[in-house]
């Protein structure tokens, strides 16, 4: 990197100093965090209503009883989530690719995709779930499955694909036009250009945004509970309705965090690495 070459000869000792300074600021950050959250915890725990609050939200007994039930529901969430996410990434890419096609011949299909994306993004996801989960099976068409689980996941795929297609589109538009022109000038067709030049770069550009959508989906799979599917949030609600205690919701939060925090950290790490790589290239 150019930066290294421009560094003055005194760079080595200054680097050592900066390490010391780094250690000191880390210590300060640690102490400050400890004091800040410690004070907060002391205030909260000493409040008069704390025992009632703790009993309502962090009840150990309810936690132990509810844990296996909520976890079994969460396993269903994970299955729905994995199936849906794979389908969304593929379907949304297809939508975005169609939308990126140029030329009058593709006009009708392009319009169809734009209309689909506009329509689906305007419909509340809960309505889409009800419409597909309860509405379609009620038509009693032969050969059409009536499983609420199946249609719930399909509704999520459709809804999220519309949003994700737009994420892909922003990625496609971020690829410099000169890339397309170069590809065409060496004889690639429009679809070949998309497939080999535009989309690989586009996807790389939007991976942090895609990961963001993934975290969001991971929580939204719970919405299929409205169809009677007993996933984690629903199991928590059932226990809460019976016990008048909110601890089961805390369990679902813990479970969701176990997934969403690593994904968020991964997204940050990836974005950072990508930035460094690009800096290295230029």
């Amino acid at each position: 990197m150019d930066l290294d070459r421009s560094r003055p000869p005194s760079a080595v000792p200054s680097l050592k100093r900066s390490t010391e300074r780094g250690a000191r600021s880390a210590l300060i950050a640690f102490l400050s965090t400890l004091v800040f959250f410690g004070a907060f915890a002391v205030v909260v725990v000493n409040s008069e209503a704390w025992p009632a609050f703790r009993n309502q939200f962090f009840n150990g007994e309810v936690f132990v009883d509810a844990w296996p039930i909520v976890v079994s529901g969460f396993w269903l969430d994970i299955q729905m989530f994995v199936v849906a996410e794979i389908a969304i990434l593929a379907f949304a890419l297809l939508l975005a690719a169609i939308r990126a096609l140029r030329g009058p011949a593709f006009f009708p299909i392009r319009m169809l995709v734009i209309a689909f994306i506009d329509l689906i993004r305007g419909i509340p996801i809960i309505l889409l779930i009800l419409l597909l989960g309860f509405g379609l099976p009620a038509l009693r068409l032969t050969g059409v499955p009536n499983s609420p689980l199946f249609w719930g996941v399909v509704a999520l795929i459709i809804s999220y694909s519309a949003y994700t297609a737009e994420v892909y589109r922003s990625g496609i538009e971020s690829v410099h036009p000169s890339q397309v022109m170069s590809a065409r000038s060496i004889g690639l067709t429009q679809t070949q250009t998309l497939r080999h030049v535009v989309i690989p770069q586009a996807v790389r550009n939007v991976i942090p945004a895609l990961l963001n959508g993934l975290v969001s989906l991971q929580k939204d799979v719970a919405l299929v509970y409205i169809l009677g599917v007993r996933e984690a949030v629903r199991e928590a609600q059932i226990i809460t309705a019976r016990s008048f205690n909110y601890t089961p919701y805390v369990i679902t939060a813990v479970l969701f965090l176990l997934i969403s925090v690593p994904v968020a950290r991964f997204a940050d790490w990836y974005a950072e690495r990508d930035r460094e790589r690009r800096a290295g290239q230029s």
Binding site: L130, G133, F134, G135, L136, P137, A138, R140, N146, S147, P148, Y225, I226, L227, G228, V229, R230, R234, Q237, I238
Partner: peptide, 21 residues
């Protein structure tokens, strides 16, 4: 098969109509 659980009677009716219960 564990009981299907609904928020409202409207949802339960829809599930009956959809032949889900």
């Amino acid at each position: 098969q564990p009981a299907a659980v609904y928020d409202t009677n409207a949802d339960a009716k829809a599930a009956l109509d959809a032949d889900q219960v």
